[in-house]
């Protein structure tokens, strides 16, 4: 879509675009190009000498069992966060769409965790699950189950998934509720007159109409789990124990800033870049479809 009526000025549009483009070039494009460049170089940690090594850094990554494990952990983590956050949000949104009394209050009470930073959400759950003083390990202990996410990798994964999903539920809830409220009531009433019960109405009428929202949210949730959960991991487990929660984004940070492996970290950055580009393309292609839906 384009404007028919425009202004004529040779200089002004460039002036208006300058701030945005300057920030984009200096802090986005240039560093990204540097990352691409470094990913094919072998550099010593002090940056004194470097050598062109073609795709050796990527080959090293592909052969690194730690990286492959991190890739697997990230896939599992994102899948679990998205599944948990989406299903619980959808369930709550269906209930909230149904109530008449107190709907606004429930909505407010369910929305606000979105305002809490992922790292702070991590700290809250860390307190609840602290092996020595937390309430839940105490309750679990009373049932004969020992909780210590500092030594048990599976428990650590469970904890970061829970903390990451907890915050995302509000976001999904807002979108599901908006999606549900946009479904014409006449469709549901027509299905009811035809004798469809609540479950059948949900699966044959509501859920298909909600599919665009669901698909959009799946992409957004995966992006969230990939990138925005850095704070959760850094605050709760720091990638441990023994790399059980070392997701890709955390590994890039750890290898680059703490391990000072510049080439390897840059190669990991490039892999992440490819993942974001793929996700963004999916997201935008889908939005294109949604407009014509």
């Amino acid at each position: 879509m384009e404007k028919r009526v425009v202004f004529n000025n040779r200089v002004l549009p460039y002036l208006l675009l300058t701030p945005q483009l300057a920030v984009t070039l200096v802090f986005f494009i240039w560093p990204a190009v540097q990352a691409l460049k470094q990913s094919v170089l072998l550099e010593d940690p002090f940056g004194l000498s470097s050598q062109f090594v073609w795709f050796d850094n990527f080959i090293a990554l592909a052969e690194d069992p730690l990286y492959l494990e991190s890739l697997y952990i990230t896939a599992f983590f994102s899948g679990a966060v998205a599944l948990l956050a989406l299903t619980s949000a959808l369930y709550l949104a269906i209930q909230a769409d149904r109530v008449i009394r107190g709907a606004t209050l429930y909505k407010t009470m369910l929305i606000w965790p979105y305002a809490i930073a992922p790292a702070v959400a991590g700290i809250l759950w860390l307190l609840l699950f602290n092996p020595t003083m937390g309430l839940l390990p105490y309750a679990l202990g009373a049932m004969g189950y020992t909780w210590n996410h500092y030594t048990n990798g599976g428990q650590a994964q469970f904890l970061v998934i829970l903390a990451a999903a907890w915050r995302q539920v509000s976001y999904n809830f807002i979108f599901f509720l908006a999606g549900l409220q946009a479904i014409p009531k006449s469709l549901i009433e027509a299905a009811a007159i035809d004798g469809a019960g609540p479950a059948r109405r949900f699966w044959t009428v509501v859920f298909p109409l909600l599919a665009p929202t669901t698909f959009f949210l799946i992409v957004i949730n995966i992006i969230y789990a990939f990138f925005d959960t850095f704070g959760v991991i850094h605050a709760i487990t720091q990638g441990g124990p023994a790399g059980a929660t070392n997701i890709l984004v955390y590994k890039v940070f750890n290898d680059g800033f703490i391990g000072l492996d510049l080439g390897g970290s840059a190669a990991q950055s490039v892999v992440l870049m490819v993942i974001v580009i793929a996700l963004t393309v999916i997201q935008f292609r889908y939005i294109e479809r949604r407009v014509h839906y």
């Binding site: 560093p31 970290s265 963004t280």
Partner: peptide, 25 residues
């Protein structure tokens, strides 16, 4: 061109260019 340059920023969150951006700053 300007439009696409701006669009590209969507695909470059801090996490994927963390070290070089740090160096620029």
């Amino acid at each position: 061109t300007a439009f696409w340059l701006i669009f590209i920023t969507l695909m470059l969150p801090v996490e994927v260019r963390i070290l070089p951006t740090y160096k620029v700053v």
